[in-house]
């Protein structure tokens, strides 16, 4: 197990994440309907469900990337998002990707090196083009990007799907540090043992 990480993120969480009757349909195919949930500071909502049940869609809705068919999501604050369909620029290096998004988010780029270390990417790899990364390294960089500016809410869709054992441990460590610092998280996974170890709250999409 990795040693406990220092709490650099002193997040000031003031609000909970609330889902009110969130429903989604693609065209005319209904994925889920009437999801209500409240995630308080320090809590993690673990979303499980079969492939195609709508885990990713729900996380996209929470992240504001998808408009729900009905219902609404309330959260007062910033959030960071990582998902399989959210990609980084392959033509830029890891450092350049982080620096680009840091500028957009008005975050000081001073912490970028520390972020890389947090997700277990050596500084040397930060100077490589992302297109040369393995899928696991890409995933680590995505997680680092989602941590930019230490947002109070993390939305991670299958964060460990392409990671090795060490990577999985890092994700677990980052998540528990985030939650113990008063952060909130919404995480989707197919791995039930992970779901057990992360979850304060479980949301199972399906029948």
């Amino acid at each position: 197990m990795i040693p406990p990480l220092p709490i650099r993120y002193n997040t000031h969480v003031t609000s909970s994440l609330r889902l009110h009757g969130v429903s989604m349909a693609y065209g005319s195919r209904v994925l889920f309907s009437g999801i209500d949930a409240v995630v308080a500071p320090g809590q993690c909502l673990v979303v499980t469900g079969a492939n195609g049940a709508g885990k990713s869609s729900l996380l996209k809705i929470v992240a504001g990337l998808l408009r729900p068919e009905a219902g609404k999501v309330e959260f007062d604050g910033k959030w960071g998002s990582a998902a399989p369909e959210i990609q980084l620029y392959g033509e830029l290096t890891g450092d350049e990707n982080l620096a680009f998004f840091a500028r957009l988010l008005a975050v000081s780029p001073m912490e970028n090196a520390a972020l890389l270390a947090d997700v277990g990417l050596p500084p040397k790899r930060g100077r490589d083009l992302v297109s040369a990364y393995s899928s696991g390294m890409r995933q680590r960089l995505k997680l680092a990007t989602s941590l930019l500016g230490s947002p109070p809410l993390l939305i991670w869709d299958e964060p460990t799907a392409t990671l090795d054992t060490a990577g999985r441990a890092i994700v677990g460590g980052l998540l528990s540090r985030h939650l113990s610092g008063g952060g909130l998280a919404v995480v989707a996974t197919n791995d039930l043992s992970e779901a057990e170890s992360w979850g304060d709250l479980r949301l199972n999409i399906g029948f």
Partner: peptide
């Protein structure tokens, strides 16, 4: 390339 979502956010 799938980079649009993060840019949106």
């Amino acid at each position: 390339a799938g980079t649009a979502p993060l840019l949106r956010l």
